[in-house]
Amino acid sequence: MARDAQETRQRLLDAARTEFAEHGLEGARVDRIAKAAGVNKERIYGHFGNKEQLFEAVLSAALAEAAELKPGAGLTDPVSYAAATFDFHRSNPQLIRLMMWESLQRQRLSPEAAARRARFYTEEAQRLAAPGTDSEDARFVLYGILALATWAQALPVASSMVFGGAPDPRGLRERIEKAVAALVES
Rank of each mutant, 00 (worst) to 15 (best):
R116A: 15
A21C: 03
R3V: 09
F48W: 00
V162E: 07
N50G: 04
R90M: 06
E185N: 04
A62T: 04
V79R: 08
L75H: 15
L148H: 02
L63G: 09
F163K: 08
F88I: 00
V162P: 06
L104S: 08
E124G: 05
A67I: 00
H23K: 12
S160G: 15
E112D: 15
A113F: 01
F20D: 05
E22P: 08
S80H: 11
L98H: 05
A179K: 07
L63A: 10
E174D: 11
Q153R: 10
G72A: 08
R106A: 09
K41Q: 15
G144N: 04
V58S: 04
A66W: 03
A21Q: 02
R170H: 09
V162Q: 02
E26A: 15
G38S: 01
E42R: 12
V39M: 03
G165N: 10
A28F: 04
T8P: 00
M1G: 13
P131E: 05
T85A: 14
H23W: 13
S110T: 08
M1H: 12
F88C: 12
Y143C: 09
E136V: 15
L183Y: 00
G38R: 01
A138D: 02
Q53P: 01
G46V: 10
L12K: 12
R3L: 08
T150A: 04
R9M: 05
H47C: 10
L183P: 02
E136R: 15
P167K: 05
S80Y: 10
A182H: 14
G46K: 13
A158F: 03
L155R: 14
H23D: 12
M100S: 04
A114N: 11
A115K: 12
A181E: 07
R11G: 10
T133V: 07
E52P: 05
A152Y: 01
L148S: 05
R116E: 08
A149Q: 08
E7W: 07
P169A: 00
A82N: 03
F86W: 06
L13C: 12
R119Q: 12
Q107S: 15
G132H: 06
R11E: 09
I176W: 01
A67C: 07
P131V: 00
A66L: 03
T76I: 00
G46C: 11
Q6N: 11
T8W: 02
H23F: 14
F55G: 04
S135W: 05
L63P: 06
L104F: 12
G24E: 08
A130N: 07
E124K: 11
A15M: 01
A64N: 06
A15Q: 02
E7Y: 08
A113E: 09
L63S: 06
S91I: 09
T18S: 14
Q153I: 12
L146W: 02
V162H: 06
F48V: 03
A179M: 08
E102L: 10
R32L: 14
P156I: 00
A114K: 11
G24Q: 01
T8Q: 13
M99L: 14
T150I: 02
D137F: 09
I33A: 05
E26S: 14
G171K: 10
A114E: 15
E68L: 13
A154E: 13
Y45T: 14
R9I: 00
